[in-house]
Nucleic acid binder design. Structure first.
Lengths: 248, 248
DNA sequence: TAAATTTATGCAGGTTTATGCGGGTTTTTT
DNA sequence: AAAAAACCCGCATAAACCTGCATAAATTTA
């Protein structure tokens, strides 16, 4: 087992369970206690998780552990401003969840007059309270991790929808594998969101570029725009342009 | 269970109920009394809560929404505590919107294990973030005034639902006209909520008693419980008892 | 290809942390 | 005032931690 491979699996576990125990991991991977500790230490230094005595917690726990702060807010704001230009009056706009999309909502010009559809609870609340636009919430069972509705009923409602554009917060994007995710329930919804929309815009901070999670949401050919905080000429975006994606 | 994880959960509990009891926590987490005490001591040293004999109190008040400016919070809390006793483990509970119902969510014992269904956005967010229970949001077009979903799709989804009990925040209640409302869109939804539930509980502060609005949600005979901040023997509740409503 | 360097891992040892328990004190309730 | 509950202090222990060093594998350099 390679080190990187092991670390990727640790992060995946963390995505699913929000916590890992050192003693579980060393058994699972059949390595020494020290190796696991060093892995967690490295990932912690990279800011990918929160190391605690006995294991590690996902960044999500950070919300309750310390004050509410968005990870890399500056970058996300840059992304939001670029993406907001794609929204025109009269559009039917589909929004996923995530802090990047939340920044997009904040960056909306107050003059815009569109209809927004979302399965994300915080997004719906924000749109309702801080804009004059019509808001439609697609609801069903709520997933606590993603703070959004999931399940068959959501998919069913999306099936009757024909949005102009869909903005999708992206956990992992790659020029070959496209947009990928780790939680099956979320995939189901995101796949249908893509199908229901004329255009798909992927919002991702650059550190999510060239990363892959277990399940595919959509192929690169299905992505219309990619928005990152980097200038569109940046070399690490080259591969995406060649895959036919418009890079903002 | 990791120490930090436990502490994060304690803070989460505090966000919901504004207080925690040591004896509840030690049972919930299956640790010794001392461990809980040390947790509370540490969190208190960090200034995250206020430690008191027997447990702890939340420090600041809540930031998620405008519950700081609740009208008559004391009365509503009294109502909430009485109403919370009607919720039992395993129930499917339907909740309307409104600040009184929000207080009910805060008054939920942390041990409760039920499924909550609601068309109210703030309610869904609160339940998701500050309880461990399953939450189902009934979504569609959102009404800005009531902060909840309205329209045919909501009614359709409610039609397939069979809840045990429905808690309804009440704007106007009268022993003859029953529960009444002024916004047509809300009536549609509330009527269907009543139909979808085995029992209906009306939560109302006493100043809403004997008031009538233009449209009827349900007749007095359809109300099972009325919960106000008044003691159940109070004379102004007499008329409701005679209408066959159980008064708490 | 062989040698040198780097990287990943494991181990020995000594230290720190988390937790529970005994026993006694303070606070609250009846 | 008695009883119950919650508190505090110190101690014991197991688990997790760290530092430094050794070794093996992988990578680079000669």
């Amino acid at each position: 087992m390679l080190k990187k491979e092991r670390q990727a699996l640790i992060l995946q576990q963390l995505n699913i369970h929000n916590r890992v125990l050192s003693c579980e991991l060393l058994e699972k991977f059949s390595v020494s206690e020290d190796t696991i500790r060093r892995d967690l230490q490295e990932l912690s230094d990279e800011g990918r998780l929160i190391k605690v005595h006995g294991g590690a917690l996902s960044k999500g726990f950070h919300f309750t552990l310390s004050s509410n702060e968005v990870y890399l807010p500056e970058e996300k704001r840059t992304i939001a401003q670029k993406a907001a230009e794609l929204i025109k009056d009269g559009m039917l706009v589909l929004l996923s969840g995530g802090t990047t999309i939340m920044e997009l909502v904040h960056a909306l010009p107050s003059t815009i007059n569109a209809t927004f559809v979302t399965p994300s609870v915080p997004m719906a609340l924000e749109l309702m309270n801080n804009s004059q636009n019509e808001v439609i919430f697609i609801g069903n069972k709520l997933n606590r991790d993603a703070q959004m509705a999931v399940g068959a009923e959501v998919v069913r409602q999306l099936q009757t929808l024909h949005a102009d554009i869909c903005f999708m917060g992206t956990n992992a994007i790659d020029a070959v594998s496209g947009i990928t995710e780790s939680i099956w329930e979320i995939i189901e919804v995101k796949k249908e969101m893509r199908r229901a929309s004329g255009k798909l815009v992927s919002l991702a901070i650059s550190e999510k570029l060239n990363t892959v999670q277990p399940f595919q949401v959509c192929a690169p050919s299905e992505i219309d725009y990619l928005v990152t905080e980097l200038p569109s000429g940046h070399p690490s975006l080259q591969a995406y342009k060649q895959a036919g994606i418009a890079v903002l």
